[in-house]
Amino acid sequence: MKLVITDLHVTVETEDGPKEILKGVTLTINEGETHAIMGPNGSGKSTLAYSIAGHPKYTITGGSVTLGDQDVLAMSVDERARAGLFLAMQYPVEVPGVSVSNFLRTAKTAIDGEAPKLRTWVKDVNAALQQLNLDPTFGTRNVNEGFSGGEKKRHEIAQLELLDPQVAVLDETDSGLDIDALKVVSEGVNRFRAREGKGVLLITHYTRILRYIEPDFVHVFVDGKVAESGGKELADALEANGYDKYLNPASA
């Protein structure tokens, strides 16, 4: 399914009234494509991710988002997930008292509309955890409670593989990971990409993760919109020159 974002405008409520963060974002992610969105802090990258997922903090003031022929903006948060969207969060939230295995089973049941077959499900969960170097006892721990930064991100990617959405939005999944964890997480994302027709929107501040997850397209995100689009060579240019050219055009 194709994710199409057209002229998306988003505001957030501040003490001084509503502030526009996204100022007309247009982006199409076709089936099988991986798009990297790179940008400096405060450019609105995460706002884009959370707006697609439907976080109540953000108000859509214009534009559209469609997944296949479905109007994403008309759906509730959980409907979006069931329609095939997934957001791997930069700061996954603790849910005290709810075990990972209970959480995963509940989510899978919600997404599929029926409970997964117990035997294959347990096998699938164990395999997914193992591939991400997560201990088998991980399932008994409470969701994100006491997880290290790396465990949180690996848990997000385990969910990605198990819930099997159509389009995954990865919000700074690479932040705070050491090189080994980054490789493990990237391998998980690449396994997902290898499946038929999956779209990925990879949001990152650094070019580092693009060494492991090769994007088809790179977009530079500045001040709430796409400033420049290109192939992966654009990431190489950013690696060499940083964001100065976009932030301070006079000095470039």
Binding site: D78, V93, V98, F103, A110, N142
Partner: peptide, 23 residues
């Protein structure tokens, strides 16, 4: 918490139920 659970396809009511049981 509710947003996190709902973003995984879990309905609002079911998310509330999970949170209370977890509590």
């Amino acid at each position: 918490q509710l947003f996190y659970l709902q973003s995984r396809g879990i309905s609002e009511k079911e998310a509330q139920r999970l949170v209370v049981h977890g509590f």
